[in-house]
């Protein structure tokens, strides 16, 4: 199998690491060679963060480079825009429709771009969801990343059962139910 490239982008603190570990666990359980590259340390403090997940028969480099991503999961609109040039021409972009102002916007030194989803949709296949609101409805805003993952899962070649199994094994036991409901919300949207 040709190696598949996935990127998860967002703002430090949004929980990209949990998402990549669920993805990595799923692919390994299916017998693929998997490499995941993460960001720890300073950039995690509210900075722009990106995680790469690659899987296939044999994976060499652990990063996804410009123009190579089959699927991008963006936890924030501006971050979707920042990394969109990493997508392949026929790549799919999943966006959590939420806005977190970076410091240059907070201080007034820069403007947050308008109509990001519309702009990106003109050049890419884009699916978006307001996962924060969906998660809030479920009673815990923290599970928004599972809502986004659920939406992304529809564009990957794994069965619903496989997803459910891996989520059960990767999230804290007390939160299994709400995380599965969050996943369902995205999956069925």
């Amino acid at each position: 199998m040709v190696t598949k490239n996935i990127m998860i982008v967002g703002v430090g603190g949004q929980g990209t690491l949990l998402t990549s570990r669920i993805l990595g666990g799923l692919m390994a359980s299916r017998g693929y060679d998997v490499k995941i590259s993460e960001v720890h340390g300073m950039a995690q403090r509210g900075g722009s963060v990106v995680t790469f997940v690659r899987y296939g028969d044999k994976v060499y480099e652990p990063i996804v480079e410009e123009g190579q991503a089959d699927l991008m999961i963006a936890f924030e609109r501006l971050e979707a825009m920042r990394y969109s040039h990493f997508l392949k021409k026929d790549g799919v972009l999943i966006i959590n429709d939420t806005r977190i102002d970076p410091m240059p916007v907070v201080t007034g030194a820069a403007k947050y771009p308008e109509d990001i989803i519309k702009t990106l949709s003109s050049s890419h296949t884009v699916y978006s969801i307001d996962a924060m609101s969906e998660a809030k409805k479920l009673g815990n805003q923290k599970v928004f990343n599972l809502v986004v993952l659920g939406m992304a899962a529809k564009h990957m070649d794994f069965s619903k059962e496989e997803w459910v199994d891996i989520i059960r094994s990767r999230v804290p036991e007390k939160t299994i139910e709400i995380n599965l409901r969050a996943f369902d919300t995205g999956y069925l949207s």
């Binding site: 430090g12 509210g46 410009e66 123009g67 825009m81 920042r82 969109s84 040039h85 970076p102 240059p104």
Partner: peptide, 17 residues
């Protein structure tokens, strides 16, 4: 040619939480 140019958008430097 691997130069895909990224969007010209505001940076997101790390900040105090």
């Amino acid at each position: 040619d691997v130069n895909c140019v990224g969007a010209n958008i505001p940076n997101r430097p790390p900040i105090l939480c």
